[in-house]
Amino acid sequence: MEIVLALVIGGLFAGGVYMLLRRNLVKLLVGLILLGHGANLLIFLMGRLIPGRPPLVPVDATHPVGLFADPLPQALVLTAIVIGFGLQAFALVLARRLYQSAHTDDLDQLRTTET
């Protein structure tokens, strides 16, 4: 399964980079979102795959028993998902404002600070 997930991550990165290199403003944002997904999955996979065993301590124990999924990458990814949400929202609104004042979505037209 790791190979499959590695391919998924690679696919997300490839799609993200391709969209990032487009001249279209909206495609750039789509690229950012794809890269974010890829990065989240990458961090998650770094904690290794332990199917079906969430990092929860049983009610009558003081620490988790047996195999359990690594909680640290999970905490990191959880943070990243929420921050990514804020970032994407901000970038989208910014792009919208930019389009409204510059009247173009072609990044090659947006080379100066004047609009």
């Binding site: 190979i3 590695a6 990165f13 980079v17 996979l45």
Partner: peptide, 15 residues
Amino acid sequence: LVALTVGGLVSVLVL
């Protein structure tokens, strides 16, 4: 081509 290279590289890196 650039994107596919980067994607392949990331896959290899992960593995």
